[in-house]
């Protein structure tokens, strides 16, 4: 244990300068791909009564041909109507209609390709409460 700790990068000036750059740069890096901006139903929230469709708005234009969305119940059974599409009027919006959903937890799984050609994917939960 002759080793000596020579330098720990905790210098306040260095941290301050680099943290500022990190804060300024990270949003730009992330925006190179398409990520969800918001959704309906909201991520992790409950809705009273079955929604008629699930919609996700992304932070950039997505490619209709390569973008998919599906909804599954707690058993993994698919409950959407299989009509996933990108709204031609708003090419940041991916949506799919669903059958009348009984109360319970559901999971939305999506995959999109942004205009820069990069794919992103993800899933999120929501819950249907009795009306």
């Amino acid at each position: 244990m002759d080793a000596v700790l020579r330098r720990v990068g905790s210098d306040a000036a260095a941290v301050a300068s680099t943290m500022l750059l990190v804060v300024l740069w990270l949003p730009g890096s992330a925006m190179a791909h398409a990520f969800p901006d918001h959704s309906d139903p909201r991520v992790g929230h409950s809705v009273r009564g079955s929604p008629s469709q699930v919609r996700i708005w992304f932070d950039g234009v997505i490619e209709p041909v390569f973008s998919t969305i599906k909804v599954e119940d707690a058993t993994g059974k698919r409950v959407d109507r299989g009509d996933a599409h990108v709204d031609p009027e708003d090419t940041t919006l991916l949506e799919v209609s669903v059958a009348s959903l009984p109360a319970g937890p559901y999971e939305v799984e999506w995959s999109v390709v942004a205009r820069d050609g990069h794919r992103t994917e993800g899933k999120f939960p929501f819950r249907v409460e009795p009306p």
């Binding site: 020579r6 990068g9 680099t18 804060v23 990270l26 949003p27 901006d37």
Partner: peptide, 14 residues
């Protein structure tokens, strides 16, 4: 909603 707070620790040992 686009931020990622980061804490970093860097060190070197002879």
């Amino acid at each position: 909603n686009r931020m990622i707070p980061v804490v970093r620790v860097v060190a070197s040992v002879q």
